[in-house]
Amino acid sequence: MIGIIRYGAGNIFSLTSALDRLGFAYGMVHTEEDLAQYDRYIIPGVGHAGAAMSKLEQTGLVPAIKALQKPTLGICVGMQLMTAYSEEGDANLLHIFPNKTLRFKDSEHYKVPHTGWNRVHQDKQNPLFKDIPDDAHFYFVHSYYIEYNELYTLASTNYSLPYSASIWHNNFYGVQFHPEKSGVYGETLLANFSKI
């Protein structure tokens, strides 16, 4: 059963709807005691990374999240929280990954926020992307991105520069795009995560 980390950042109705459609059981994690009853976790997140980190710190869950041994998937800002730092709010984050989260530079040719369906290139092989073609499109909405890093980048997107569309280290996974809004392949990814 999937435990969704609840810390007051963003709406999770679309995520739980996707899990309902797929038939996966889930529950909510509000405190450290809640963690034990789940075999994997999703850290959702929409909005401002610095503000999201403050809210997460208020739950007291930070040390327990950093120590998680079970599969854990961060989505969008939930993934950015797993990096070391974000320019959004000049905030230190969970530091599960050493990468930084940076703002897209203003550019004539690349609009910000990066909005829409973008190809995702699978740099590494991983069960998270099982049965998903390389360079498939996923739905993105974000103004901040996680640096590309050969060690931790699982899949990348090129939008003014190559950056991490997905990261992976041991039991920790993150996706910048919204699998709950990314059509059939997004649902495949969530299904893959539920079996990792």
Binding site: H114, G116, W117, N118, R119, H121, D123, D135, H137, S156, T157, N158, Y159, P162
Partner: peptide
């Protein structure tokens, strides 16, 4: 590496 590894574009026009 970037030129050969990454698609040069990839943001789809939306319908």
């Amino acid at each position: 590496l970037h030129n050969t590894t990454f698609p040069t574009s990839g943001l789809a026009k939306r319908i």
